[in-house]
């Protein structure tokens, strides 16, 4: 077995420096690497390019890095819940690239799988396709999109073992598995880190080969953005 365990979030993020490109898992605040984001705030690294589906909210998730002016460029599909983000974007302080959600997922998966690029119909005829190669297949138009390139992928899983194998829970899975192995170094923080051999190999979502460092996370807040319930009938 090849051990991937590191003992602290500091160790897990060692080597992250100003100007790097980071992939960060999560959808809204669901399944975000809370410990790593807190550590990035503490480190104070700046001029980051962050690739993540959303940009957090004003006081949580990637919103914390935005507030601290640590992000130079944000690549996301939807940023509707963050006033500070919208302010920085409209004022031009923050560089923003908005891309279709499925394209973002596939750009990560392509990097993970070793594909340099792929054709997708998403965005054809829109400003997303401007400057990109367009090709027709069987009468339908497609846009050439490239695999992401990143220094670190930072993901959050439910359970993981010391070999770096990961299991996700519910819709907290989202982009996390797609980002594993899509950067030079993949860091996974997990709610429960167990010895190798404790997880059923049949149930592993991401094999440890895609993960370089795994760390036991702590104090998960798991904030709910839109708590919605139905009345007891």
């Amino acid at each position: 077995m090849i051990t991937k365990t590191v003992n602290s979030i500091e160790e897990a993020l060692a080597g992250i420096s100003d100007g790097m490109t980071l992939l960060l898992g999560g959808f809204g605040l669901c399944g975000i690497p809370e410990n790593a984001i807190a550590e990035l705030v503490r480190l104070g690294v700046k001029d980051l390019t962050c690739i993540s589906n959303n940009a957090g909210v004003d006081d949580f998730g990637l919103g914390l890095l935005l507030k601290n002016r640590q992000i130079k460029k944000m690549v996301a599909s939807y940023v509707g819940e963050n006033d500070e983000f919208e302010r920085q974007m409209l004022s031009g302080e923050l560089e923003v690239e908005l891309i279709p959600q499925g394209t973002l997922a596939e750009r990560c998966r392509a990097a993970q799988a070793g594909f340099p690029a792929f054709f997708t119909p998403a965005g054809f005829g829109t400003e997303v396709a401007e400057g990109k190669e367009i090709r027709e297949f069987d009468g339908k138009m497609y846009v050439l999109e490239k695999a992401v390139k990143a220094d670190f992928a930072i993901v959050k899983a439910w359970k993981g073992d010391t070999a770096g194998n990961l299991i996700f829970k519910g819709t907290a899975r989202n982009f996390n598995p797609n980002m594993c192995g899509a950067a030079q170094i993949t860091v996974a923080e997990v709610e429960e880190l167990v010895p190798a051999g404790s997880l059923d190999p049949n149930q592993i979502h991401i094999p440890g080969i895609f993960v370089q460092r795994i760390v036991q996370g702590k104090d998960y807040e798991k904030r709910i953005e839109q708590r919605t319930t139905r009345p007891q009938s």
Binding site: C30, G31, E81, G170, T171, A172, K222, E225, T229, Q232
Partner: peptide, 21 residues
């Protein structure tokens, strides 16, 4: 499925609108 009953919300189970489901 539908929204959960109060007290049964799971932060790890949401829809694309970020609502608990």
């Amino acid at each position: 499925g539908p929204f959960p009953f109060e007290g049964q919300e799971d932060a790890d189970v949401i829809n694309a609108g970020k609502q608990t489901i």
